[in-house]
């Protein structure tokens, strides 16, 4: 009987775990060893800083990061003065001045990241009709899992969180190349192994660069890793707070379970 019940319970639990998007049949990018995944993972601040540099020098020409504020950069290990100096490179519209005009003034650390285009129409007009997506949530929005229920379930238990979105960003950055002989890529489009349909409007954004100041090599792979890490952080800047609190809460509940189990045994000792 108990066997039957546990079977039924297992079935019920399995039902609950069906992530709806498991289908799709899209290519599954290979898994990358992100330092922030797992139960005790943490961001590599140096990598995030290099990633910010890649965003600033490469991505920000076309992609906005509109949900992030300059002040959030303090979490990457920058001082207030550094954050201010970074923000000061950008301009935002002021409140109406005494003449009723809104003029461009230096951005402050309280401002949101300045977008490269004023609106969607301008973005499309300057990119032959394609819209470069906002990157603030791109890692969470591309967290499509592995296309298979059991692999996703296993990833969940390992605490990979939304890391499959970062896998995708990395794969996309490193997936450019010449199309196979049998694939025709339209004019103005580019072949990418990991993009749905393989034809992407964005040209290869990252090329080999000089090594960073700290000696990190400027390979495409290294830069792709840094920008994916940075965007992973940008998708949920409170991630480390969540992870730290989670460890404490789960530990507390585990202890509480033990206490309650002993209490229950003791209370029920005399019941037959």
């Amino acid at each position: 009987m108990n066997k039957l019940l546990s079977l039924a319970a297992a079935a019920a639990l399995t039902l609950t775990s069906f992530t709806a998007y498991a289908a799709g049949g899209a290519l599954v990018p290979p898994e990358m060893p992100w330092p922030s995944v797992g139960y005790f993972g943490a961001f590599d601040k140096a990598s995030l800083q290099r990633g910010l540099k890649v965003y600033t020098e490469v991505c920000s020409g076309c992609h906005s990061l509109r949900l992030l504020s300059y002040r959030d950069l303090g979490d990457l290990g920058y001082s207030n003065a550094e954050v201010k100096a970074y923000a000061a490179e950008y301009e935002v519209l002021s409140e109406p001045n005494k003449d009723g005009d809104r003029v461009l003034i230096q951005a402050s650390s309280a401002d949101k990241f300045v977008s490269p285009y004023a609106n969607e129409q301008e973005a499309r007009a300057l990119n032959s009709g394609a819209l470069p997506p906002d990157l603030s949530l791109i890692v969470k929005a591309r967290n499509r899992g592995k296309g298979n229920f059991f692999a996703n379930f296993y990833d969940m238990l390992r605490g990979r969180g939304y890391a499959s979105g970062a896998d995708y960003v990395y794969a996309l950055m490193t997936g450019y190349g010449d199309p196979p002989a049998d694939v025709e890529i339209a004019e103005g489009m580019h072949y990418n192994k990991w993009f749905v349909g393989n034809a992407i409007a964005m040209a290869q954004p990252i090329y080999k660069a000089d090594p960073a100041a700290d000696g990190t090599p400027g390979t495409i792979e290294q830069q792709a890793k840094d920008i994916a890490s940075f965007l992973m952080w940008a998708s949920e800047p409170r991630f480390e707070e969540r992870r730290a609190m989670g460890t404490k809460v789960l530990l507390f509940i585990a202890l509480f379970i033990i206490v309650l189990y002993m209490l229950k045994r003791r209370v029920w000792r005399d019941v037959h």
Partner: peptide, 22 residues
Amino acid sequence: GVIRRDFLAYTAVGMGAIGVGS
């Protein structure tokens, strides 16, 4: 009086209070 003044029961109530508070 099985659980009265019982250490386990007090621990459980205390932890419950901490949990609700947190």
